[in-house]
Design a binder for these strands. Structure first.
Length: 812
RNA sequence: GCCCGGAUGGUGGAAUUGGUAGACACGCCAGACUUAGGAUCUGGUGCCGCAAGGUGUGAAGGUUCAAAUCCUUUUCCGGGUACCA
């Protein structure tokens, strides 16, 4: 039989007390408390799924909660809110599986989540709770969409999209993994469709540049840099005839290799393909185009290294030499990057080389091993002897003078596909005035927002690429303000719409738009610490940065970046070291752990497992350690009669043993630094050492001052037990209203230190000395040590190294 | 393939950023108190060795008086990305 949580009654008591007394309320500008320095600490809000929380979810919440509780004690005005990201595919699929309307399942799931979070004693300001699916919230998501349209940043386009037949919707690039849907792992194909798009590419440069000023994990910044994928190079025209200036345009990052071009390759989908195809090659080209069309993206990548292509029969002319260059088509060239065509330099590009070798095309080296241009002179154009960098510069300049080239920058980043053919999302506030949806549109008036999602029975995808909303006739057909009839847009917004601005919404929980441009954002922004999973490194985190920059340009916010510091909590694996999942059967439910050990033990244990950002396996067996520690603390403070222990007496700090005074001050220093750096595992270990030492040094009488300070140090970690002890100590207010303990810097290290004595790099002895001892004195003492003399036997000291307070190293 | 990150006892992890490797815990061993203990307390615990001592941070080299930490090569694991010209 598992033991029952011995502290369950006091846990609920204090959780209630905190809520009743608004202990975690964040003061807005103008309110009492707002004159304090602000600290905005945000956890990525959860997706309330049907499964509830597993022990991995709270990891980040607990870590930030500890920091927030500490910051309040340090006198900060702390904003620590929580909300629900509930629109989108997962919620809808869950609803379809269960046969219940998504609004109902969402409501139920949120209740479960909230109950579970509250059980953990997390200090959220629930007065600011938000929900992306509530009309009062998505009213503003729709309003933002309108601003995007007005600024030309949201537009419609017929684009090749990631269409997932099984899900019946398009997916954003970051929702597609290995050619399969992130949700469910269904196959995804490319298909042209009318979509709403967000012009994130217009902000590519700023999104890239501003990364430098962010206190984010370097790996995440690098991921975003790669995703944006900026390439600097040039656009070069290979003319159709030796005398014309129009021709096949290519993008290259290596203009220095221009003289090594031996053939051209265009993508099978290239729009100017017909211009190159020679009559006797038509059949071969057509069949190649056809075969690559039938290949899905997945097949194309599966085929991987094996390149294929055919000669078109057509030629273009080299912009400098005027030589004829054959034009091929091959599907290793992508139609949606650059110009969809490349100049092939098989001598200096692996892919071109592979292709040239397969089809017997010329290979002409133009750069030697030292990175110097060779074979690159033609007439009065002399490029030989230049370095690669000089070559890029000079060749591009030459092309510019010939009107056959110019500098150009390309990005890998694509515009954000902003529509989904789904029911469970924010309706797009647009009315179409033409039947084919490709003509005039109007935006729905601000006073008519929110445009609410109709309550319908059939929210399942239609399968034909249309949103289920299209079947709701009475909703689709509408009139605009002039009385003209129109048809509402039936696509909805993607799941990442609501999460791209929610951090701003918490700053002012009122429903007024003015809330934004006012002091609230100026005061609270940006988020000081953002905690969440690394899986959002390029999706959510990039979209949120993009919108923030747009808001900045609109004058709605004063900060260009939403999240100053970012930390990813590591993955909590199952006991088997595998990812926790229902199918593996290795999911641990926090409710079970809490009912057995209590939430303080649970909090402490999750933090004690290791560094917050590291992936680590859950180990229920190890929980005993922190539970014992808390029990020892409890027994020290509270007697069997449930009153404050009689052992606790007034004993001035100066009467404590000297080494304990040192340890006491040292521990305050370390715990303080560790909390600020989110090194909760080592902070807990320091607290354990201190408590062990109290048991050793004060078996009969425990100094009251120690109990008070220790209780405060422990309070961010174990808030329930410490509140109880704090009140038993006679304090009327919560530990959250007390000041964080100070340490005496002069007492954080002892005067006596143990030196390590090494002979020829090996540890041979140790020696206790005063910290400030002179080197000469150390030398004399060391040379007299019997063990050291034994190791020196007759040898002379060649070198004597003394590192103050640390060690002595002798070379003999 | 490319780009990041990691590898320390039986286990989770420490290590003042080049200075006594293994803190703190779990587990294990021994003991104390107990009718009893899966409660509590005390001691021990990297490996080899009775000991002196040797050896040891994925592997192999190197720099240094001194390397888990810096450099080179390499293996394995995790994450990202994939023909981006």
């Amino acid at each position: 039989m598992p033991t029952q949580n011995p502290w369950s009654a006091l846990e609920s008591k204090w959780q209630q007390y905190w809520q009743d007394n608004k202990l975690f309320y964040a003061a807005n500008p103008g309110e009492e408390g707002a004159e304090k320095e602000k600290f905005y600490c945000l956890d990525m809000f959860p997706y309330p799924s049907g499964q509830g929380l597993h022990v991995g979810h709270p990891l980040g919440y607990i870590a930030t909660d500890i920091l927030c509780r500490y910051k309040r004690m340090r006198g900060f005005n702390v904003l620590h809110p929580m909300g629900w990201d509930a629109f989108g595919l997962p919620a809808e699929q869950y609803a379809i599986e269960q046969g219940i309307h998504p609004s109902e399942t969402t409501k139920k799931n949120i209740e479960t989540y909230k109950k579970q979070l509250n059980m953990l004693g997390l200090s959220f300001d629930w007065s600011r709770e938000l929900n992306t699916t509530s009309p009062s919230y998505y009213k503003w998501t729709q309003w933002i969409f309108k601003q995007m349209v007005k600024r030309g940043l949201a537009y419609q386009a017929e684009v090749a999209v990631n269409w997932c037949p099984a899900l019946g919707t398009v997916l954003a690039n970051d929702e597609v993994i290995d050619g399969k849907s992130e949700r469910g792992g269904h196959p995804v194909e490319r298909r042209p469709m009318r979509q709403w798009m967000m012009k994130i590419t217009e902000y590519a440069d700023r999104l890239l540049e501003d990364l430098d000023q962010l206190d984010w994990p370097e790996s995440t910044k690098e991921l975003q840099r790669n995703w944006i994928g900026k390439s600097i190079g040039g656009r070069v025209t290979f003319p159709f005839s030796p005398i014309t200036k129009d021709g096949l345009e290519v993008f290259t990052t290596r203009p220095d290799t221009l003289m090594g071009v031996t053939f051209m390759v265009i993508a099978p989908e290239h729009s100017e393909l017909e211009k190159f195809v020679h009559a006797d090659r038509k059949e071969a080209v057509d069949s190649y185009v056809e075969s690559s069309k039938s290949k899905s993206d997945l097949q194309r990548t599966d085929l991987n290294r094996d390149k294929s292509g055919v000669f078109t029969g057509g030629y273009v002319y080299h912009p400098i030499t005027g030589n004829k260059i054959p034009v091929w088509i091959a599907d290793y060239v992508l139609v949606n990057y650059g110009t969809g065509a490349i100049m092939a330099v098989p001598a200096h590009d692996e892919r071109d080389k592979e292709f040239a070798e397969k089809y017997g095309l010329d290979i002409k080296p133009v750069i030697n091993d030292q990175g110097i241009l060779i074979n690159s002179n033609w007439d009065d154009h002399e490029f030989n002897g230049l370095t690669v960098e000089e070559g890029k510069e000079k060749i591009l300049l030459t092309l510019e003078n010939l009107v056959l080239g110019k500098k150009e920058t390309q990005y890998r980043l694509r515009d954000w596909i902003f529509s989904r053919q789904r029911y469970w999302g924010e309706p797009i506030p647009v009315v179409h005035h033409t039947a084919d949806l490709s003509g005039k549109i109007s935006l729905i008036n601000d006073q008519d927002l929110p445009l609410t999602l109709p309550a319908v029975d059939s929210y399942k995808p239609t399968g034909g690429g249309e949103s289920p909303l299209a079947t709701v006739k009475e909703w689709v057909e509408c009139r605009d303000e002039t009385g003209k009839t129109g048809m509402r847009e039936t696509n909805t917004m993607p799941g990442s719409a609501g999460s791209s601005w929610y951090f701003l919404r918490y700053m002012d929980p009122s429903n007024e738009l003015e809330a934004w441009s006012n002091k609230a954002e100026e005061y609270w922004g940006p988020v000081d610490l953002y905690m969440g999973g690394a899986e959002h490194a390029v999706g959510h985190l990039l979209y949120a940065r993009f919108w923030t920059k747009v808001f900045f340009d609109m004058g709605l916010v004063k900060h260009k970046e939403p999240f100053k510091k970012l930390v990813h909590q590591g993955l909590m694996q199952g006991e088997d070291g595998e990812k926790m999942s229902k199918s593996r059967g290795n999911v641990v439910n926090p409710d079970d752990i809490i009912s057995e050990y209590g939430s303080d033990t649970f909090r402490l244990f999750e933090m004690f497992l290791g560094p917050i950002e590291k992936a680590k396996p859950w180990q229920t067996a190890n929980i005993e350690g922190v539970h014992r520690f808390l029990s020892r603390y409890w027994r020290l403070c509270v007697g069997d009669n449930n009153q404050l222990s009689e052992k606790i007496v007034d004993l001035p700090e100066l009467s404590w043993p000297k080494d304990f005074q040192i340890l006491f001050n040292k521990t305050i220093k370390q715990v303080t630094g560790d909390i600020e750096g989110l090194r909760h595992n080592t902070a807990i270990s320091a607290l354990m050492i201190l408590l062990n030492e109290v048991y050793a040094k004060f078996p009969d009488r425990v100094p009251r001052k120690f109990v008070e300070d220790f209780t405060l140090l422990l309070s961010p970690y174990a808030p329930h037990l410490t509140e109880e002890v704090w009140s038993k100590l006679g304090f009327g207010l919560s530990t959250q209203r007390a000041s964080w303990p100070e340490f005496d810097p002069s007492k954080t290290q002892s005067d006596e230190v143990q030196l390590a004595i090494q002979v020829n790099g090996k540890l041979r002895d140790t020696l206790w000395v005063s910290r400030e001892i002179a080197e000469e004195e150390v030398r004399a003492l060391v040379l007299e040590l019997p063990k050291i003399q034994k190791w020196m036997e007759g040898k002379a000291v060649r070198k004597f190294i003394y590192v103050k307070g640390k060690l002595v190293s002798l070379v003999v």
